[in-house]
């Protein structure tokens, strides 16, 4: 196992909060006030989606629908990874046919997680649209997938790891770029 060492801090607490707000506002603007369904990808996509939902509720005076998506049952590397990913609960609102879906995740990297999430969503019906919101886009795509809403786009090296920390899970809001050694 390789260990991680801190390369640099990309964002501090106030930047994280401001960026999430900006993304929520952009989503509202692009969907011109139509109600959207926010689906957080387990794990850090979930608190992100929750916070964006809260911001939208303040502006819309109406709570947007919210759900959790676990993509482990849809991974394309199940036979390749040595460890067995723990499957977590998926909770999707009962009828999301013909709705506008916002998929929320912390880091967009190879695009494989999003591919799995799209497959998962297809099993829940036919949505009006599926849009992708990611906090950090770090490049290195292995699939033709791009985000509609991006918190921050950065250039990274292959041996770097982007860690998004959120209060609900990690006790702090921050983004660090680590390096495998």
């Amino acid at each position: 196992m390789s260990s991680l060492k801190l390369n640099y801090q990309l964002m501090k607490s106030d930047e994280v909060a401001a960026t999430l707000q900006r993304m929520a506002d952009e989503i509202l603007e692009m969907n011109s006030g139509r109600p959207v369904v926010l689906l957080g990808i387990h794990r850090r996509g979930v608190p992100m989606a929750r916070r964006m939902a809260k911001r939208m509720a303040e502006k819309l005076k109406q709570q947007p629908q919210f759900g959790i998506l676990d993509i482990n049952l849809y991974r394309d590397d199940l036979t390749k990874v040595a460890f067995q990913p723990v499957v977590h609960k998926t909770e999707v609102p009962s009828n999301i046919d013909d709705h506008d879906i916002i998929l929320v995740d912390d880091v967009l990297y190879t695009g494989r997680t999003v591919r799995a999430a799209l497959d998962a969503l297809c099993d829940f019906g036919r949505m009006r649209s599926i849009q992708l919101a990611v906090f950090i886009d770090r490049g290195h795509r292995e699939m033709p997938i791009e985000a509609n809403f991006i918190g921050k786009k950065i250039k990274t090296k292959d041996n770097e790891v982007v860690e998004v920390k959120l209060k609900e899970i990690d006790g702090e809001d921050a983004v660090y770029v680590m390096e495998k050694t």
Partner: peptide, 23 residues
């Protein structure tokens, strides 16, 4: 406990309109 926890997560699949995942 691991088996029971995974079972709890997988219960949701049986409540979907399309009761199938490609795993």
């Amino acid at each position: 406990l691991e088996i029971l926890d995974v079972a709890e997560s997988l219960q949701e699949v049986s409540t979907r309109p399309i009761k199938k995942v490609p795993t």
